[in-house]
C-alpha cells in the first residue's frame, strides 16, 4: 500500500519520479504538498482503497507522511469493512 501511495505522490503531485520519498518525510510541513495537493491524495486513496474520508478525519495526524496515511487507510478499511 505504501508503495502505491508513494508512487502516486511522486508521479502525480511532485511530478518527479526521481524524488525518493521516504515513508517518514513530512509532506505538509516541508511544503512538498499543499492543501490542494493533499486533497488530490485523499481523492486518490478514497478511490484506490475504497474508503471514504469524512471531514472530521482530515487532520494532520492522519496525513503528515506516507506512513500515517497507510495506517489511516488500514484503520478506515477495518471500520468501513
Amino acid at each position: 500500500m505504501t508503495n502505491t501511495i508513494t508512487t502516486y505522490i511522486e508521479k502525480e503531485i511532485l511530478n518527479s519520479p526521481d524524488t525518493q520519498l521516504t515513508d517518514q518525510d513530512d509532506l505538509l510541513g516541508s511544503g512538498l504538498v499543499d492543501s490542494m495537493g493533499l486533497m488530490r491524495i485523499i481523492a486518490f486513496i478514497e478511490e484506490e482503497f475504497g474508503i471514504a474520508v469524512p471531514p472530521t478525519d482530515m487532520v494532520i495526524e492522519h496525513f503528515m507522511n506516507i506512513e500515517a496515511i497507510s495506517n489511516y487507510v488500514l484503520k478506515r478499511q477495518t471500520i468501513d469493512g
Binding site: 511532485l14 518527479s16 486533497m39
Partner: peptide, 9 residues
C-alpha cells in the same frame, strides 16, 4: 479562487 495548481509542475 482556487489556484488549481495541485502539482509541482
Amino acid at each position: 479562487p482556487a489556484h488549481n495548481r495541485p502539482t509541482a509542475a
